[in-house]
Each structure stands twice: as structure tokens, then as C-alpha cells.
Design a protein around this nucleic acid. Structure first.
Lengths: 348, 348
DNA sequence: CTGAAAGCGCTTACAG
DNA sequence: CTGAAAGCGCTTACAG
């Protein structure tokens, strides 16, 4: 029944081999408590011979502190997700913590996974997929764990949420189009109810409305290159009087597909200006040269790290003093990367 | 010192709340041992009220079996890595195991991380980055853990290694070029000593040599689109008599950059035929239409899963009976995806 | 069906 | 400097 139990050495085996008490073996490895240097060395050698090292589970249990952080993630098929996870894993590594991953096949699973994560008594949880329900957030925080939500709300006033300033990105895109004198504006949006893409679209629409312009919004369930290509087809089928002359795609994948769909039919940015979001590697490739927004991943990670470090030092919340616009939500400015598809009308 | 210890409820708290013994609380959650249905329900309610669930660390300790699997990974900036990790996380999730990630900033760190992983007493370890040293492999397997290496050797006869059949891919590419009557062959290789890219290059060269053709190999330290573009520049600078008319890029990133670098200077596949490796999403985009190899990820995962399932059932090794070509290494055939850059010379 | 007790593999006061 | 002992939060025979 017990899988392996037999055969695995314990600190007692090492103690026997080094002819010391089991407690000394522990001290040799933790570095806590006095121990003669020579004894320590003898123990280390014995451990090596036996092939033993401390059982991290047992250590975590007895110290009441597991060096773990739970990370909720999902399919990595969108480039941006992989970038985020990669950067996150690196940060966690640098904390000398271990990421325990919870993979959500769909957003609906996220709540169950958060519950499961609680069982591991980790230092905290980082959510990069799905939605954090309010009572789940409370359960996590009440147990003294930190809660960080990336590009989504934490739904708790002691939770922490870092996001790209999506509305600002949308507004900047609109402003750029208006400065270029574009007339008919279109947004390639995400699924209904999605958080980040909706905020981008709303920021865009709002700025356009303030300038007296109307905006069409086409929602897309997948936000893939295929979806972008489909939108291009839809645009080409429109009566020419209704064809937009400026398009804001709420992610790069759609923008790239859109460009491919228009290739040979329209000139960019002559007929249609285009701005994307994410600054995927492909955005700068020769056939695209897409004007887009870079998400401030490094800044987001810095903020996240600062929050978690603050948490572990049990500092009082400094957030009130700092007067964030929206408590618990840190917005980091996206950076406009101007390439050929918009914003360069003054250059040849 | 102890971080949280205080405040966190235990099974005793639940027992008190439900007016039962602590042992019953355990039985209510594990499902092992007899317990009256009504008692169980009362306990579950009490636990919910207290906000408690079993401590997975303590459970793992006492059962001697932690439902963990260690995964060694690295930066996810290459698309293929992210795909692999994503698929892996899903498989592990389906086993009802939890992936504990070890992130190696460089290959040199991998050995240290493997050592660290041992401390968690996981069911096994899956290596997707760096090299598994022989004695490290032995240490893992001697402790009864499984060892799986993806696209690299496991370096132990009880380890398990699944890889794309890289030499075969190389040979197939060469064969296709030869059938097209290409004369001057070039390989865009990876770093010296890299495993998979070198095998691809070798397979290619070998097949070419057998047909009496010479092959030039240009190694690249990064295998990025930039490297591919640089190779294009280098090619264009060559005296025309020496210019290759067929290029095998050992990954798609280089192939795509190479295409961009040639754009406007050479016609593809007229002047130069090109084959890549990986079948990245971008390979099928309109400006590229790259002929390339799809790595058989699903088959690799199926094999991996079968091995690990076999391991947990303590089955005798079946490998000898099956007579694998190379013991412990399973090669899965890559699939040629024929698009526009090679292999379609008969079609307009 | 339920409870008291032993034990998982460690760490850490507490005595010597 | 070292060792014996308590205890971390559970699970699981073993008695009742």
C-alpha cells in the first residue's frame, strides 16, 4: 500500500553511519544550533554515502512553513501567457520558493483548484487564469497566505492585483488614430465578459466618444490569428462607405491574422491603420511591423515581488498612505511601440 | 520565527467542533475505515465552518507518498518549450499529481535542481532542460522514483527518454531536397553539442553524403529568428556559385528569420528551397507557408504517460521484450508538413 | 461504528 | 558541543 517507504533512508540511518544522535544530523543540515565543525563534516560525508538529504515535507511540517507558492495557470498556447509564467517561475526561484502548479483546463476549474491549493499550506497563491471568487479570496487571506492576481482583480482588499493599465492603452490607441485624422474606428475585442480585453476596448471607445467619434466593436471568442483573419474577411465584405480606416485589435494574435487577411487587398497604414496589444515577437517581423503596446511585464513582476516581500515581513499595509487610485489594484502603463501600421504617417 | 503556525486550524479543532475524535475527522476525509454516514456529514460541515481541510504535507508524510512530480524546465521563450510544458502540466493534472517546478536559468543549474528535487520525495522527475548526469540519474532511480527525459537522454537504463526521431527528420529533409534535384545543401544548425539540433543536422548530412552530396553547416548559438536573418545575410554575401539552393533549418525560428532576410532578394522555393523544424503556429501564416516538421507531441506524451503508469504499478520492465532499437530511448516520428517553401515543385 | 495510541521523519527547546 | 524528548498534523492498525 505505502508506495516506497521501505528503502528510503532517514536521518536515523545517517546518524547511525556517523555514530551521532539523530538530532545532530538535523543540525548539520539546517545550520541551526551548535555543532562541532568536524562532526558536521563527518555527518555530511555519511549522508552522502547513504544518499540521504532532509525530507522537505517533514521539515515543512515541523517548522510549520512550506517554502511553496501555488500558481494557477492554464494552457500556454498564447505567447503572452508563456512569457508571464516564465518570468514568474524565475521570480519564485529567486525567492528560494518552489512553485506548485495548478493547471486549469477551463476557467470554471479555477475555483476548485484554489481550494485544492489551500491544502498544501503554501506561502501564498498567484493566479494567472480565471476568476478569484470573493469568498475564496477571503479563505486564502484569512489563512495568512498572500494572494496575487495577475491581470485580473483579486476581489479582496488585502489581495494584490497587478495589471497592465488596459484602459489607458485603449485611450492611447484612440488618441493616436484621432491625431492621424482617422474617421471610422473599429475595435477587435475579446469574448464578452473578459477582463483585460474589455477594458482595452472600453478605454478606446471612451476616448473616441469624448472626441465625438463612434466606434464599432467586433467581439471574438478566441482572440486567435484565425479570428483576426476572419475579421479581415468581414471588413472586406462591408460596403466601402462603412469600411473602417483605423482598427484597434485588443491583442497581437488577432492583429497579425487581420494583417494577413488584408494582405493584397488594402494598403496599411494608407487605407487602414492598425494597432495591436502585447508586442509578441512576431509583431516586429518584416511582413508585419505592427504598431502595438508592450505590456510592462518587468514592472509588474517588480511590483508583485515587492508585495510578496512586504507580506512576508508582516509590514503594515502601506497602500493607504500611497493613495493608489483603486485600492489593491496596481496598474502599470503599457508602452506604445510605434512601427509601420500606425503612428508613422509623418515619415515616408 | 514560525511563520503562521498560530491561527491555522487542525483536525483537532474540527473534531472538537463536531464532537468526535480526531481519528474520525481523518476517516471522514480519506474515505478509509468505517464511519457512519451521518457522522461523516456532521464532520464535513464542521470542517467547512472551521475552514479546514487536511494538510497535504502531513498526509504525504504519514502515508510515505507525496502526490508530487518534479519538473525541470527553463525559459519558455521558445514556442515549442511552452507547448511541451503546457501539455505536460495537463497530463500531470490528469494523474491527480501536482507538478513542482524547478526553473533552470541555465543548463548548468540543472544538476543542482535535480538534487534539490530529491528532497521533496516526489513520485518522479521529468526533465525538459539541460543534461541528466549519470550518477544523478542513478540517485533518482535508486530511490524508486521514475525518471523521464524529454528530447534528451535519460542516461540510465531504467530511465525513460522520449524524443522526436531527429535523425529521421534530417534524413527526410535531405531526401526531399535530393528528389527535387537540389545541388548545394546548407544546414542551419544549433549550438555545438546541443542534442536534438545536432542529430537533425547529422541525419541530414548522412543522407546527403550517401547520395554523394556535400553539406555545409552553419552553427548558431541561439537558434532565434535573428540568427536566421543573420544567416540570410551571410548567404547573400556569398559568391553566387557557392550559394546553396536548399536549406534545412534545424528549427522554425531560424527558418522564419531566414525567410524574412531573403525576402525581396531571392525567390522561394525557386532559387532556394527551405525546410524547418517544429511547425510553430507562424509557420503556416501567409507570408511564410513554411514546409516543416511537426514534432509528435501527442505521441510523446502518450508514451510518457504509459511509462509512468507502468512504473507506479511496479510492472516488470517490458522493454527487453519489445526490443527497442536503443534501450530506454523511444523515438517518435516527426511529420512532414508540406507547404510552399519546399516539396511542392510539381504544383504551380 | 468509534476512540486511544503509535508512528511518519524531521526540528528545536531543554538538559547535560 | 551533544543527546533525549517533545511535538508538528496527520493516517492507520488495534481494541473496544
Amino acid at each position: 500500500m505505502a508506495r516506497r517507504k521501505s528503502g528510503t533512508a532517514t536521518s536515523h540511518d545517517v546518524a547511525r553511519a556517523a555514530n551521532v544522535s539523530q538530532a545532530l544530523v538535523s543540525r548539520a543540515f539546517t545550520g541551526n544550533g551548535r555543532i562541532a565543525p568536524k562532526t558536521r563534516e563527518r555527518i555530511l560525508k555519511a549522508a552522502e554515502a547513504v544518499g540521504w538529504q532532509p525530507n522537505a515535507l517533514a521539515r515543512s511540517m515541523v517548522t510549520g512553513d512550506a517554502p511553496l507558492v501555488a500558481v494557477i495557470t492554464t494552457r500556454l498556447n498564447f505567447d503572452w501567457r508563456a512569457q508571464v509564467l516564465s518570468r514568474l517561475l524565475k521570480a519564485i526561484q529567486e525567492w528560494h520558493l518552489k512553485p506548485l502548479l495548478f493547471y486549469a483546463e477551463s476557467d470554471a476549474e479555477v475555483d476548485r483548484l484554489l481550494d485544492e491549493a489551500l491544502g498544501w499550506r503554501a506561502r501564498g497563491v498567484i493566479v494567472t487564469a480565471g476568476v478569484v471568487r470573493e469568498n475564496r479570496a477571503a479563505a486564502i487571506i484569512d489563512k495568512g497566505q498572500f494572494l496575487v492576481a495577475l491581470n485580473r482583480p483579486a476581489n479582496h482588499d488585502k489581495g494584490f492585483s497587478v495589471a497592465t493599465d488596459n484602459p489607458l492603452g485603449g485611450r492611447m490607441a484612440a488618441k493616436l488614430f484621432l491625431e492621424e485624422g482617422r474617421q471610422r474606428l473599429l475595435v477587435l475585442g475579446g469574448p464578452q465578459g473578459s477582463w483585460a480585453p474589455s477594458l482595452r476596448a472600453e478605454g478606446f471607445s471612451q476616448a473616441a466618444h469624448e472626441a465625438g467619434r463612434q466606434v464599432a466593436v467586433w467581439n471574438n471568442d478566441t482572440m486567435s490569428t484565425e479570428a483576426g483573419r476572419a475579421c479581415a474577411g468581414r471588413l472586406l465584405a462591408l460596403p466601402s462607405a462603412q469600411q473602417p480606416d483605423a482598427v484597434f485589435a485588443t491583442n497581437d494574435a488577432m492583429a497579425l491574422g487581420f494583417l494577413d487577411g488584408l494582405r493584397g487587398h488594402r494598403s496599411i497604414p494608407g487605407d487602414i491603420a492598425l494597432i495591436g496589444f502585447d508586442n509578441l515577437p512576431a509583431a516586429e517581423w518584416a511582413p508585419y511591423r505592427l504598431t502595438t503596446f508592450e505590456q510592462p511585464l518587468e514592472e509588474m513582476m517588480r511590483r508583485l515581488v515587492a508585495h510578496v516581500d512586504g507580506h512576508s515581513e508582516e509590514q503594515p499595509l502601506q497602500r493607504n498612505g500611497a493613495r493608489e487610485q483603486c485600492p489593491g489594484l496596481i496598474r502599470c502603463k503599457p508602452k506604445l511601440i510605434t512601427r509601420m501600421t500606425a503612428g508613422k504617417t509623418e515619415c515616408p
